[in-house]
């Protein structure tokens, strides 16, 4: 079983005696894109945060490439370099330019050569169509541009898995498309991703597998996303999807 890239066993998360995650089991294979959907507060964002070590877990195990993740500073840092994350809110560092934002972690954390990383940064910026904004500060960019930069900032670490936590939820509608297009391109080029989103059309288009979360557990899992969105098997998933129709 340990040949899956990321493997989660019986993950429990409690917060103030409320159970947020009730024993999640999940395996993510290399190159696979899993989309998690579900109502607010169902624990889907918390799961991503646990995988990035931003939340303590009360039980269960997380394996990355077959190796059990331990909670110590060194392990957590190396794990975070292998599991990249992009957040809902614009999380660029406001006091640094676009390029500095991207270069900071590879140069300081991974100790890579600045020139080499900069060349790669420019390539990635080119790919997301923002090479000309490299010297701008985040406040000079739109929300959609900021999120594209945040994706580049995560990618340049060469993560094995990318976690995307509702990255378009805070964007104006016309910006959503440009960001999702970048994610779709990543999926096509074989990136392994775990995505939490409320964009159902996007989920349908990108997912290899869909998980429907409610009350901290996986209620429905489907390897055939198109079928899932047309005919969900569980009543709860059906009701949830219905709330997106007008």
């Amino acid at each position: 079983m340990e040949n899956s890239l990321l493997s989660i066993k019986n993950l429990h998360k409690e917060f103030d005696r409320n159970t947020i995650l009730k024993g999640i089991n999940l395996k993510l294979n290399k190159g696979e894109v899993i989309v998690i959907i579900g109502p607010s507060g169902c624990g889907k964002s918390t799961l991503l945060r646990c995988l990035n070590g931003l939340e303590d877990i009360q039980g269960g195990e997380i394996y990355l490439g077959g190796k059990l993740l331990q909670k110590n500073a060194k392990d957590i840092s190396s794990m975070r370099q292998k599991i990249g994350m992009v957040f809902q809110s614009y999380d660029l560092f406001p006091h640094k330019t676009v390029l500095e934002n991207i270069l900071l972690a590879p140069v300081k954390v991974q100790k890579r050569k600045r020139a080499e990383v900069e060349a790669e940064a420019m390539e990635l910026l080119e790919r997301v169509g923002l090479a000309d904004r490299k010297n701008d500060y985040p406040r000079q960019l739109s929300g959609g541009q900021k999120q594209r930069i945040a994706i580049v900032r995560a990618l340049i670490m060469h993560p094995e898995v990318l976690l995307l936590d509702e990255i378009t939820a805070a964007l104006d509608p016309e910006m959503v498309h440009e960001v999702l297009q970048v994610v779709l391109d990543l999926a096509k080029s074989g990136s392994t991703m775990l995505i939490v989103t409320h964009e159902m059309a996007f989920a349908k288009a990108i997912a290899d597998r869909v998980l429907f979360f409610e009350h901290g557990e996986i209620v429905e899992e489907s390897h055939a996303p198109k079928a899932f969105f047309e005919r969900p098997q569980t009543e709860r998933a059906r009701q949830f999807l219905k709330s997106f129709e007008y």
Partner: peptide, 9 residues
Amino acid sequence: ESAESLGMS
């Protein structure tokens, strides 16, 4: 959190 998620100490 974003600094942490980039592996910074």
